[in-house]
Amino acid sequence: MNIFRLAGDMTHLASVLVLLLKIHTIKSCAGVSLKTQELYALVFATRYLDIVTDFISVYNTVMKLIFLGSSFSIVWYIRHHRVVRRSYDKDQDTFRHYLLMIPCMLLALFVHEKFTFKEVMWTFSLYLEAVAILPQLVLLQRTRNIDNLTGQYVFLLGAYRGLYIFNWIYRYFTEPHFVHWITWIAGVVQTLLYADFFYYYFESWKNNVRLQLPA
């Protein structure tokens, strides 16, 4: 475990906490894309199939349980919570899941390291995670007033991906045979999707104005 990896995981954890804070405390999911949250739940469900077959560390297992539990409970909150569900921007959150899921599944079936169920699912989760933020970014673009917590949530998620790239660079130079093309390319694509958001996030922060993405 290096500092970039730890910082990345903590940023990821922070993003989830910020989102849960918004949903649980303010009882609002305004500006949060249910589509993205459902895709993340699917990402973790398909990636962490090894939680029952391989033991890596207590840290690893606990974090996996946190990400699985939080992603499914966020989806539950938005769909079923009596108060929270009323704040969901259903008419704005129109991105169609299958446009992302089907190409990712096809790609995972053809481009993978090993053709086993677990490995193809793991690869599918990497491809899907890379694009899962898209419905959220589209929703942000349609939302005129992005509240602070939603902006911070997306910023923390983007920071987590950026830190993972530094983690891979570090591991490449410190560990023998650490070459993972699929993980790296999917991770870089994922981080690049945040570039535009980061630009406007820092602009709004610098000028001390409310975050707004141009349509």
Partner: peptide
């Protein structure tokens, strides 16, 4: 351990 290296990530 080439295969398991990145599987320890989240």
């Amino acid at each position: 351990c080439y295969q398991t290296n990145s599987k320890d990530e989240l």
